[in-house]
Amino acid sequence: MFTPRDRRLAETAVSALTDQLDLAPKPGLPDPRDPAARVTGHDHHALRWSAGAMTSGLTAMAAAARRTGEPSAALRAELGAIGRCTEHSLRLAGGGHRGALWTLGLLVAGAALTPSTGSDDITATVRRIAAHPDPGAPHRPSHGSAMSVRYGAAGARGEARAGFPHVRRALHVLTATRRSGAPETQARLDALLAVMASLRDSELLHTAGPSGLRQVHSEVQAVLEAGGTATPAGAAALAALDEALRARGWSPRGSAGLLAGALFLDALKSAGRNGNSQGAGSGRR
């Protein structure tokens, strides 16, 4: 049995994901400028459609956390089983979003277990959930697990076990950039870049290797040091970064899912300030 709060948490997470998809210009990532996926290889319309297919699975994850009542090994196993079923639904709907599903699924479960809408409380709960192994996880290696073994990258599991430090970093930059008076789009782009500047993205490691990853980190840092995307110099540096990543065929996909996680936590915090701690649609447009 699902409660209204279970559904609202899931809908807030999907809204955060679609907000991330609609953000532009995202360097090397799918966005509305490339709806036919000529550059990124991911059809923007299909990604929006498949994001909606995540709602039922995220609702079930919220319900499982609420019903279990603690970040236990049993909950971790149930979340893994729900996640694999949801991945199948995503493939049928057009694919994509595996990283976002991992991030948002754990954050939704953490929010369902946490009375507070504070990001630190929710991510601390996620850390306790992710500390348990998933007994049903497939044994075949993924790109992420292979890169973790080869290069020592934390990967998606390491991010979760650390309480999603890059989600928290993105949320901090999002808040600080808004306070500086930047428009919402630029605040979100700066939050994305804050993740890209230090994340050891397994997709980039797979396609570009460690030297390519270091190059991306340096180029992203140059945008931030130019004053961020709200300044003329920063906007020009962002355009150059986007052109370079697309020309090379490099896509920092891991950063996009983590930004969606930050937008989800931001929406929960906004709902809490407005007196609706039960969840809400994505906070700002």
Rank of each mutant, 00 (worst) to 15 (best):
F164K: 08
R161H: 05
V220L: 00
G234A: 00
L171W: 09
E203C: 15
R128H: 09
A176W: 10
H132T: 05
A187C: 14
A208N: 03
A222N: 05
E225W: 09
R150A: 15
S202Y: 06
A230V: 03
A154V: 09
A146M: 12
S142H: 09
R178Y: 09
A230K: 08
G144H: 07
R169V: 12
P165T: 08
S202V: 02
R161W: 10
E159Q: 15
S145K: 12
L199W: 01
A244G: 02
A146Q: 13
P141H: 08
A197F: 03
R214N: 10
T175G: 12
L171K: 09
G163M: 13
P183V: 10
R128V: 05
L192D: 06
G227H: 04
R140G: 11
S211A: 13
A153K: 11
R168V: 12
A197Q: 12
G158V: 07
R178S: 10
R150I: 03
L192E: 06
P232K: 03
R200E: 15
A170C: 07
D190E: 04
A222S: 03
P183K: 04
T231L: 01
P138M: 04
Y151G: 06
S211W: 09
E203V: 15
A244L: 12
D134Q: 07
G181H: 11
T125Q: 06
A182F: 10
G227V: 00
A137H: 15
A236Q: 12
G228P: 01
S198F: 06
L193K: 01
G144S: 07
G209R: 01
T175K: 14
R214I: 03
A160I: 07
G228M: 02
L205D: 11
L193N: 00
E225T: 10
L213S: 05
R168K: 13
A237I: 02
A176Y: 10
G209Y: 07
A237R: 14
A226F: 01
P210C: 04
P135N: 09
H143S: 15
L213W: 00
S198R: 14
A160D: 12
D190F: 04
D201W: 01
L204D: 02
Q186E: 15
T125E: 06
A154P: 14
P141V: 08
R200I: 02
G228D: 02
Q186G: 14
A156L: 12
G209A: 05
L204K: 04
L205I: 06
A239T: 13
L238S: 00
P133E: 11
R161D: 12
R188M: 07
V173K: 01
H166R: 14
Q221F: 00
